[in-house]
């Protein structure tokens, strides 16, 4: 459903992504795991058409994201919870999204409820929101169109333990209802708890791929992660 096919990206000769390939199937949660600066955000921006790959291609439902008709209706995206106009209320942010996607206004309340933002919080300017509230708002925005695929960049950042547990449940139930979920994170534990499949990335390259169970069997996710990223750093240096 979401497919990276040999995606490379170079900025002024420096390779940010090097032949990244992997697939996210419908009904599964894929954790895109890597240290800061590994290329996770670059990959997700290429996937959503904000950036162009130097070579290779990324597709959603078999087509480049930007070529989908009204992509926001089929693909929910949260790339940066901080990218909000501080003067708009949470409700206004959702209203603009619903208008743009041609959705009834009732979706604004439904999405707000789904992420646990109260009516009062929704009327406040997002400039005063905590990072956790911004993440919830961003997830509500991504879910407006009842998407079949979900792309989330570091959604667990700033969430408190209750928030993280809530998100885990939400992503699980979305995947169980057939949604393809791709979430990036540098938080090993978070990804391990919710993902079915893990794609490990370091220095722009896919270091390992597999199910959570496979990683657990082969020495544990954390050990594998630390070993592989250290190796990638050494070979880059």
């Amino acid at each position: 459903m979401i497919e990276f096919h040999c995606v490379s990206k170079a900025y002024k000769g420096v390779k940010a992504l090097d032949e990244v390939s992997f697939t996210v199937e419908a009904g599964s949660v894929t954790g895109f795991l890597g240290p800061n600066g590994a290329g996770k955000s670059t990959a997700l921006r290429i996937l959503t058409g904000l950036s162009r790959p130097t070579s290779g291609s990324a597709t959603v439902f078999g087509r480049p994201y930007a070529e989908l008709a009204c992509p926001g209706r089929r693909v929910g995206t949260l790339l940066d919870a901080g990218a909000l106009h501080p003067g708009r209320s949470g409700r206004e942010v959702l209203t603009l999204g619903a208008m743009m996607l041609g959705l009834p206004r009732s979706r604004v309340e439904e999405s707000q409820e789904l992420v646990g933002l109260t009516g009062k919080e929704g009327r406040r300017a997002v400039g005063g929101y905590s990072l956790g509230m911004r993440q919830r708002l961003g997830i509500a925005h991504a879910l407006l169109g009842r998407p079949e695929a979900l792309i989330l960049d570091e959604p667990a950042n700033g969430l408190d333990p209750q928030g993280i547990q809530w998100m885990r449940g939400l992503l699980r139930s979305l995947a169980d209802s057939g949604c393809a979920v791709l979430l990036s994170s540098h938080l090993l534990h978070e990804v391990e708890q919710v993902a079915d499949q893990i794609v490990m990335i370091g220095r722009g390259r896919v270091l390992a791929r597999g199910t959570v169970a496979e990683f657990a069997r082969d020495g544990g996710l954390e050990r594998t992660f630390l070993e592989l990223t250290a190796q990638a750093d050494r070979s880059a240096a």
């Binding site: 058409g49 904000l50 930007a66 790339l79 940066d80 990218a83 999204g97 996607l101």
Partner: peptide, 14 residues
């Protein structure tokens, strides 16, 4: 200024 381009151009890539 507020980086909302990130959201806007994801909803309408054209």
């Amino acid at each position: 200024r507020h980086r909302t381009a990130l959201t806007t151009f994801v909803l309408e890539p054209r």
